[in-house]
C-alpha cells in the first residue's frame, strides 16, 4: 500500500510543478501556522504541568459496543462460549471495588454492583492449565527429569508469557479493571478465567485444546535446556543415571586438543562408560570441556539435545487427558509445583 502511496505522491508532485507554472497554487491560510504553533506550545505547557497524557481506553470512544466486542472475541478464538460466563471472565475484582467507591462518593450507603468477578473462573482455569501443561510436558519429554519439567512449566505459566498471550488474543480493551492499560497480573487472571469459562461452557476437551493451542505453543523456537541447569551437581546426576542403567562408571577422556597456549585453544573431551561414548563437549580448557561433555551426555540421556524431535502441538487432547488418569503422571501434576 505504501508503494501505491509513494507512486501517488510522485504523480502529485508532477501536478504540483504543473500548477506552479500554469495556475495559481492553492494557498494555506496565513492563520494556520501561528494557530498550530500556539496549540503545540499550550500542549507542551500542559505536559510539563501534568506529565504525559494518559492513554485513552478504546471503550471510552463513542463507537464502542461491549457486548459485540465480547461476541467477536469468542468467534475470533473459534469457540462457543456461554455469553454470561465470558462477560464475567473479563471483570476484575478491582473494577467492582471502583464501582462501589463511585456509588459511595455519590452518597449511596449500601452500594449495589450487580456483577461477580472472575476469581472462581480464574481458579478453575489455573487448575486446568497446571494439569494439562504438566502432563503435556511429561508426554512430550518422557525421559526428562521432574525438576526440569517443573522448570519448563514455571516458565510457561510465568506472568510474562501468559500476559503476552492474553494481550495478543485481544483482551486489552475488554478487561474491566481499575487501571488502564491493565496490570500484567490482571491480564494473566483474565486468560485463566477465559479458560475456566470455556470449560464451563464447552467442556474439558475444548479447554484443553485451548491451552494446547495458545499456551503450549509458546514452547516453539525455545531452547528448553535453558530453564533447568541440571541440578546442583551435573556430574553426580550423570553417575547416578549410569548406575541405574548399569553402564559402569562414566569417565572423561581427552579426545582432541588444538592450539594449546594460544588464544584459540580448544580441547575436546568425551565421556565414556564401559568404552562406550555417552557424549562429548569442547571448551577453551579441559575443565570447561569436561563440564560441557557431562551436560551433553545428560542431554543425550534426556533426549533433549539440539536435534531433538520438535514438540507435537497437534497432540490429541484425549491422549493427554487419558494420561492424567495414570497414577504416575497424575501424581507428578499434583505434587506441589
Amino acid at each position: 500500500m505504501s508503494l501505491l502511496r509513494i507512486s501517488s505522491r510522485v504523480i502529485f508532485s508532477s501536478n504540483a510543478t504543473a500548477l506552479l507554472f500554469n495556475q495559481q497554487k492553492a494557498a494555506i491560510h496565513r492563520f494556520v501556522r501561528p494557530t498550530l504553533f500556539e496549540i503545540r506550545a499550550r500542549k507542551k505547557k500542559l505536559e510539563e504541568l501534568n506529565g504525559p497524557p494518559k492513554p485513552v481506553p478504546r471503550s471510552e470512544f463513542l463507537e464502542w459496543n461491549h457486548d459485540a466486542e465480547i461476541y467477536a472475541f469468542g468467534k475470533r478464538l473459534k469457540e462457543d462460549f456461554n455469553f454470561q460466563l465470558l462477560q464475567q471472565a473479563f471483570i476484575d475484582r478491582s473494577y467492582i471495588v471502583q464501582e462501589e467507591m463511585k456509588q459511595r462518593s455519590v452518597g449511596v450507603e449500601n452500594p449495589l454492583v450487580n456483577m461477580s468477578d472472575n476469581a472462581t473462573l480464574a481458579k478453575k482455569g489455573e487448575e486446568l492449565i497446571t494439569e494439562f501443561v504438566i502432563s503435556f510436558l511429561n508426554l512430550s519429554l518422557p525421559k526428562f527429569p521432574r525438576e526440569g519439567v517443573k522448570a519448563i512449566y514455571r516458565h510457561l505459566v510465568s506472568d510474562e508469557v501468559l500476559a503476552k498471550v492474553s494481550e495478543s488474543i485481544g483482551t486489552k480493551e475488554l478487561i474491566l479493571s481499575s487501571d488502564y492499560p491493565p496490570r500484567s497480573d490482571v491480564y494473566v487472571n483474565t486468560l485463566k478465567a477465559i479458560i475456566g469459562a470455556l470449560f464451563e461452557s464447552s467442556g474439558e476437551a475444548k479447554a484443553y485444546e485451548f491451552i494446547r493451542d495458545f499456551i503450549c505453543t509458546q514452547l516453539s523456537q525455545v531452547d528448553i535446556n535453558e530453564f533447568w541447569n541440571y541440578g546442583e551437581n551435573p556430574k553426580e546426576l550423570l553417575e547416578e543415571i549410569c548406575k541405574d542403567k548399569k553402564l559402569g562408571e562414566p569417565e572423561p577422556r581427552l579426545i582432541g586438543q588444538m592450539g594449546k597456549n594460544t588464544l584459540l585453544a580448544v580441547s575436546h573431551v568425551g565421556i565414556y562408560a564401559n568404552k562406550k561414548m555417552l557424549g562429548s563437549g569442547f571448551g577453551e580448557d579441559i575443565q570447561t570441556a569436561t563440564e560441557e561433555a557431562i551436560k551433553d551426555s545428560l542431554r543425550n540421556f534426556f533426549k533433549t539435545n539440539c536435534n531433538m524431535k520438535p514438540f507435537d502441538f497437534r497432540m490429541p487432547v484425549e491422549k493427554v487427558a487419558n494420561s492424567l488418569n495414570k497414577p504416575v503422571i497424575a501424581a507428578a501434576s499434583v505434587d506441589n509445583i
Binding site: 467477536a72 475470533r76 503476552k164 495478543s168 509458546q218 502441538f313
Partner: peptide, 15 residues
C-alpha cells in the same frame, strides 16, 4: 504474533 498458526490461526483484524 504469538506463533499464530502453529496452534490455531486467529484473525488479526479486530474492529
Amino acid at each position: 504474533p504469538i506463533y499464530n498458526g502453529i496452534g490455531r490461526q486467529i484473525n488479526q483484524l479486530q474492529r
